[in-house]
Design a protein around this nucleic acid. Structure first.
Length: 216
DNA sequence: TGCCAGGCCCTCTTTAGGGCCTT
């Protein structure tokens, strides 16, 4: 049985909403998903010196004392970049995590080169009947397992990976798309939502004609 | 005091408003 390239599913816990306003990461977790299974995990708290507001501690359980004893962010991000390697990346609301990925790597003098696919956009297109596409709600809607304490990086990264695996499975079983690779996911998430069925049908037809190429 | 990001999506459909989603 052929093996697909692993996809790195990432989640950051942070001190705020955007690096543009000085927010920094407090924790990062990355899981590698390959052939529908989590095959490796990376997780670490990180020390940036930026104060964690009280409401963030209430949300995540991550305290200033916890990160004070953590390794420096630059060191963690170097390890994270090595862990990801050349894998393509996925996050739940990727516009959030990709900005922190880029910003935290920049603090470590590393340029981010990975492209991101977003499970929120994919979920909205494939499961329009869901009332909410927040990570916990879509996990419950699809009957997927909860992975631990919500709003901790590893649990959220694992749940996003479960969601991605389900998306890939549904693309295979419902849409006959055998090779739901990262570039297909990126294409699907950019497809206008009302045209998703037509788009998937065309992709499946193209893939059936040329299985080694996902087509355009 | 009240607001605080930004991209996407939907709607009382189009240039604007409001909600979702992430911490």
């Amino acid at each position: 049985m052929s093996s697909t390239e692993p996809i790195a599913v990432i989640d950051f816990e942070t001190t705020g909403m955007t690096p543009a306003q000085g927010a920094r990461a407090t924790e990062v977790a990355i899981v590698l998903l390959q052939d529908g299974r989590i095959v490796d995990r990376f997780q670490s708290l990180m020390r940036t010196g930026v104060h964690i507001p009280g409401f963030i501690t209430q949300l995540t359980g991550i305290t200033n004392a916890m990160v004070a004893g953590a390794p420096p962010a630059e060191s963690v991000m170097r390890d994270a970049a090595r862990f990801v390697g050349g894998a393509q990346m996925v996050a739940h609301n990727a516009s959030f995590d990709s900005k922190f990925w880029t910003a935290e790597l920049a603090h470590a003098d590393i340029q981010a080169t990975q492209s991101f696919a977003c499970t929120v956009l994919l979920s909205r297109r494939l499961y329009p009947e869901a009332r909410s596409h927040s990570l916990g709600n879509i996990i419950d809607h699809l009957g997927l397992p909860r992975a631990g304490r919500a709003h901790r990086a590893l649990a959220d990264a694992e749940m996003a990976a479960f969601l991605l695996a389900r998306i890939q499975r549904d693309l295979r079983e419902r849409w006959r798309i055998q090779d739901a690779r990262h570039d297909l996911l990126c294409g699907l998430q950019k497809c206008a939502r009302p045209a998703v069925s037509q788009w998937l049908g065309r992709r499946a037809a193209l893939q059936a004609e040329s299985p080694s190429s996902p087509g355009r």
